[in-house]
Write a protein that binds this DNA or RNA. Structure first.
Lengths: 204, 204
DNA sequence: GATCCAGTTGACCAATCAGTCAACTCAGCT
DNA sequence: AGCTGAGTTGACTGATTGGTCAACTGGATC
């Protein structure tokens, strides 16, 4: 197999960043190529369309995050600690991005999903799929927390849906308002939503 | 003042519908003009840019909704009844739209806000402003409910933020998943989030 | 060193984009 | 009747869009 190329990866990273920092519709294939330092012909050698690239880029983005999430949501960690660690990581990442590009970007999956779900079924399904995977982490943490008696959530799935919706809504608000405080306050909001007693939070 | 024209209104309605049913970026000025049956020159007679039209269309959309909301959230209505009525109206409107265009569209303000908040400061501020006005309805209903002892929410503002975030997140999910059930289940989720005792819901 | 082929290149295309403009229409006013 | 000016019209522009293509490159295999 002659020639090793990192053009495909560079295109996916460039697409993720540009689309996150503006939008899918406002990001052109040319923009992505320039940022990735890859010529247009190479773009269409690796991806059959802009939509095709975005689907691959979303999956690659998730795969990268998944590794961290598997650590944070490890069953060896107390369930409320998992959620606390997750919100800490999220705040750190958003703060980092804010420093780099001057704005709060929110959730890259939800943002593009909301934008193109009525235009591109492939992207819609990919985003739906990825958000479903994220929900699984929340669900098992909630189920474990209920089993340990630190929260009352007989229906873990329903409670996870509540939490995920609150989470996504807050991320959307943070983006629209360009307001990091929304994200900073999310941990407290999540624990309030879960009905966590302050006593349970000692050391978390 | 010679000639009465409804072109401006027709353009705003067409823009709201087209952008809601696809996206801001994917909706062209030509599309809007065709749907409104107005020529391009007239468009730029009334609005100085596409962004300018969208800002006006968002405000017009809110003004139309505001009248209904003032009825639903009237202080003469019991506070939990207000919320219940609001979620009923929301479900009815989304169901109606689904029949008309075959998809769940979610919140028109949040969708466009998420899409363009990093590209267009004018639209971002308008969306931010409108979502803030909506939050006021929730806040006062929650404050009244707390005062009457039917829920426990000493900080009505914080609880309203929680509810609004859940609401917006659910609407985004409904759009991404094209799933009416998310909206149908939102009333129950909202009351669970508020910690409403089932006994308080008799007749609601 | 000939062959192979994944990867690269940049010119190219038709379609579409937001926005412009000068000419035109027509109801109300004097 | 003639003027005024808000509203209308459709052709037009230059830039940009997503996508195509034939020619080319260069490391690996035989």
């Amino acid at each position: 197999m002659p020639r090793v190329s990192d053009a495909k990866q560079k295109l996916m990273v460039a697409a993720r960043d540009l689309i996150w920092e503006s939008s899918y519709g406002a990001t052109s294939v040319d923009d992505i190529c320039v940022k990735a330092d890859v010529r247009k012909g190479s773009f269409y050698h690796f991806f059959k369309s802009k939509s095709d690239l975005e689907i691959a880029a979303l999956e690659a983005d998730w795969q990268e995050k998944k590794a961290h999430y598997n650590d944070i949501f490890s069953p060896t960690v107390p369930p409320l600690q998992r959620l606390s660690d997750y919100f800490d990581l999220l705040l750190a990442k958003q703060t980092e991005r804010q420093k780099a590009c001057g704005a709060i970007l929110g959730c890259p999956f939800c943002a593009v999903g909301t934008e193109v779900s009525l235009l591109d079924a492939g992207i819609r399904e990919k985003v739906h799929d990825i958000l479903g995977r994220l929900a699984k982490y929340f669900e098992s943490a909630i189920r474990d927390a209920h089993a340990q008696g630190v929260i009352n959530a007989p229906d873990a799935r329903a409670k996870a849906n509540l939490l995920i919706a609150y989470f996504q809504g807050t991320m959307a608000q943070a983006r629209i308002e360009n307001n990091l405080e929304r994200i900073a306050g999310m941990k407290a909001g999540a624990f309030e939503l879960l009905g966590v007693q302050p006593a349970q939070l000692a050391g978390v």
